[in-house]
Each structure stands twice: as C-alpha cells, then as structure tokens.
Design a protein around this nucleic acid. Structure first.
Lengths: 201, 201
DNA sequence: GTCTATACTTCGATAGAC
DNA sequence: GTCTATCGAAGTATAGAC
C-alpha cells in the first residue's frame, strides 16, 4: 500500500475515534511511521485528508443506490414480507463494511461542525430513504396489497423505527457491531410485524 | 446579573453555536466584556464552565420528571386521545424554553467527545422515555382501552417517530423553532392517528 | 474582582538538505 | 519523497499590581 493510502487509512481510524479537531497531524504521521512534513507531499492540508475521505464515501454510497426502474421491478416481483427481508439484508450488508462504518462515524462526530458531513445525513439518511420508502408503499397500494394511506405517512411510520435504532445503538450506545446484535434483529422483526398487521388488507 | 452568570450565559450562547472546543476563553470573556484572566476568579477552568452548564440542565430535567404515582393517576383519568395531547403539550413547552434548547444543542454537539453529555441522551431521550411510554401503554391495556401487545414494542412504535422528528428537524435540518413548525405538528397528529387506529379495540 | 503582562503548550504548515 | 529544523498563530492558564 502506498503512503497516501496508508495516511488515509490511519486518518480514518483516528478521526472515527476522536473526530477531526482532536486528532493532530503529528498523530496521523506517527501512526503511519513518517514525519509530519512528509504528509504534505501527499496532501496540501489536514482538511484535504478529510475531504478525500468524504469523497470516497460519496462514491461508495452512490454506487449502492439502485436506479428507480430496478426498484420498481423488484417490488413487483416480491411480497411485502420478502421486500422487508431484502431491506434488512441491504442494511446489514452496509453496516458490515468496517471502513464505511468508520467513515460514517466520522460524519456523525463532525456533522455539527462540517456542513458537508451534515448534507450526507440529510441526503442519504433522511430524504432519499423517505422518498424510496414512499415509492415502495405507493406501489404496494396500487397493487392492492395494503390498505390506503398517505404513502409519506407510511414511509415515516416504517422508517422512523430504523432511525430510532440507528440513533440509539449506533450514536448513543455505540454498539461496535450493530449488524450482528440479536436484540436489534429481534426489534426489526417485531416492528415489521407490527406495521404489516396495521396496513395489511 | 452578576459576572459569573453573565459568563455562563455567554458560554451557553457560544457553545451552542460552535461547540466547546471551537470556542475560546478569549471569545467568552470578550462577549461578557472582561479580560480572560478575570474569568478564572469565577471558574477554575474552561471545563468547569461546561460542567456547571450540564449540572444546571440535570436539575431542570429532574424537576420536570413526574413521579410515577402521578403519571398513573393522570392516565387513569384520561382517554388515550387526551393523553396524546397532553404529551404533545409537554414536548412543546419543553422545546419552547430557549435556554434549555441551547444547552440541549451543546449536548448534541459534544456527545461524541463528552461521555457525560452522551449519558443525558441515553437517560432522558432513550431509557426514561421508553420506560415511561411502556407504563402508559401497559395501563391502557390493563384498562382494556387498547389491544394486547408487548408494551415495550408499542412504546417503540410510538416513540420512534418522536426520535425521527428530533433527529431530522433538530439535529439535521436545525430548525430554529421546531415547537412552532406547523409541518411538524401535522406529522405528530398524523402519527398519533395511525398508532391509535392500529391499537384501538 | 479586574486589570496588564506573560508563561507554557500544542497546533498546522514550510524551508531546505539529502 | 523523506528527513531535520523551525516558524507563527492560537490556545489555556497564572502572577502580581491595583
């Protein structure tokens, strides 16, 4: 691995533990095994390290976003129950990528100081998710699979629980491996059950 | 107002805008109109300012927590609908206190760096809230007002939406006055409706 | 209790030899 | 592309006069 990538890796490790401000360039270079001045042959500033980490995340996130037509096709060939399991698996797979999780933790630490970090939250954790869920429920209604509701309300009822779990276990309790926590898995299943009972015809 | 309180007030204003680390003692004393050295006649360190702000919040929060017997008595004399309105009003009143809101914003900025700040979230925003909601639904079930469910599940179904709104509007979108936002009020009413329809006998 | 003056530390970043 | 050496800025905190 070249020096630039080793710097990025060390920075992700350190920033995800203590945030951007509380990690010095000295610490990063010590972790890599080079002198501070050498870092500036690869990055023009400490800030640029963070920018490149965010850019890496953006590329990864956009890669995993399915085009709308594919989503519609999938939903049409799935029962609501199957779709729930599919959604849970996407979530689990995503949470299992250790580097992405570390970068997401950097975002959560920095989002009050860094507008770009907060935009990730707004786009990927709020807006896209609600819009996506709304479409799913709309299609299910059109197919007559569930009762009639405002799709946006249903999306919130379904997705609010995910935010609750994210907030509680990832941000507050800092579960080191939420994807494999059986308590969380049980809560997810119970929630899906509750919603399905409430909206099934 | 004495100098110590003016320091606290200025610190709350500044910390709530940019967090503890990014506000210097110089800035605080400049806002108050004294020299840096004078601050140390009132506080032994910058850290102690934050500690006293947190202590003030703790006293305020414990003051507004109703004893269990009173909660039970209230629920027994209310319909589920009335209780929902009561809960919404407590929430609205709480969010209307500007100083508490600023301190809560400090908590939200600092909770990844400050273990004490995070404990407030765990205690008041997660554990106490879920426990409280569980009791409410348990009593309603015992009175035969709603269908039988696991009270903890119902508490989550009901409360997850509040966390969603908190997360979205307070932490991500940074609504300056969420208590008076009609969009949020509408979402709260829609959510209560949805849950009540799902659990009413 | 407030001031002036300053000590001490740590930070990000640069110059220039090799 | 790495090193040694160092700079200037900004931070918290203290000493001592008034």
């Amino acid at each position: 691995m070249n020096t630039k990538d080793r710097i990025l890796e060390a920075a992700i490790d350190l920033f995800s533990e203590r945030g951007f401000n509380d990690v010095s360039v000295r610490e990063i270079t010590r972790a890599v095994g080079i002198k501070e001045s050498s870092l500036y042959n690869h990055f023009t500033s400490k800030q640029q390290i963070l920018d490149e980490i965010f850019e890496y995340l953006r590329v990864q996130l956009d890669k995993t976003t399915l085009p709308e037509e594919e989503v519609i096709k999938m939903i049409e060939n799935m029962t609501p129950g199957e779709f729930s399991v599919f959604g849970a698996n996407v979530f689990k797979e995503y949470m299992g990528n250790l580097t992405l999780m570390k970068i997401w933790r950097i975002l959560s630490i920095e989002r009050f100081r860094n507008e770009k970090a907060n935009e990730f939250f707004k786009k990927y954790l709020i807006d896209n998710a609600i819009e996506y869920q709304s479409k799913v429920f709309k299609i299910m209604m059109d197919k007559g699979l569930i009762k009639e509701f405002d799709p946006k309300l249903l999306a919130r009822e379904f997705y609010a629980h995910t935010i609750y779990l994210y907030f509680r276990f990832f941000e507050v309790e800092r579960d080191t491996n939420p994807a494999d926590n059986p308590e969380i898995q049980r809560m997810v299943m119970e929630h899906m059950d509750f919603i399905m009972k409430a909206i099934n015809k």
